[in-house]
């Protein structure tokens, strides 16, 4: 979603920001894991984004910009500060970890969606958010890098670790369910 060089008016902001409302709420709800906190977070994001809109650079990616505001707002909130601790070794390594073979149990039927949702909830927030941005929002690596303010190499390695962690969580949950 690139914004052409045009006057940044409140009307433009509304046109750009409101179509993202449902997705931003979903993302906020996954981050906070609480309805009231998610609503506060989205409301604050829109207020900050509207105030900061005159400084938004036309020609750059609006979606990445407003997601970044939401995420930064979350990180400075009380629950965000508690949740968002990215291990240092992860940030310094851009090497891809060896891929784990997919457990056959991963063939997930829709009836097992609850299990998958629980597995996603149990992931550390830095894994959960990158999976949502990639799989649900279908952002490109470049957009994710802009949203998270990290280099593309970190996006790739973190995404790979997040997927491995999700598979591990599922394997554990499927194991305890069947075992």
């Amino acid at each position: 979603m690139e914004v052409a060089e045009e006057r940044l008016t409140a009307a433009t902001f509304e046109q750009l920001a409101m179509p993202l409302f449902d997705q931003l709420y979903n993302f906020a709800r996954w981050l906070t894991q609480d309805t009231a906190e998610a609503e506060d977070l989205v409301q604050e994001t829109y207020a900050k984004a509207l105030r900061g809109f005159p400084t938004f650079q036309p020609g750059t990616n609006f979606r990445a910009w407003i997601y970044r505001i939401l995420r930064n707002t979350f990180l400075t909130s009380r629950s965000g500060m508690k949740a968002a601790v990215v291990p240092l070794d992860e940030e310094t390594s851009t090497e891809l970890p060896a891929a784990t073979p997919s457990p056959e149990a991963i063939l997930i039927e829709r009836s097992q969606q609850q299990l998958l949702q629980n597995a996603m909830e149990d992931l550390p927030v830095h894994f959960r958010e990158i999976l949502l941005l990639c799989e649900v929002e279908e952002m490109s690596y470049q957009e994710i890098a802009e949203t998270l303010s990290v280099p593309i190499g970190t996006v790739m390695s973190r995404l790979s670790r997040a997927r491995t962690a999700l598979r591990d969580q599922l394997r554990q949950k499927l194991g305890s369910k069947h075992g």
């Binding site: 979903n26 709800r29 996954w30 969606q113 996603m120």
Partner: peptide, 10 residues
């Protein structure tokens, strides 16, 4: 499955 589980909240 992740995509569909991830679009959970309205």
């Amino acid at each position: 499955a992740t995509q569909s589980a991830g679009r959970r909240y309205q």
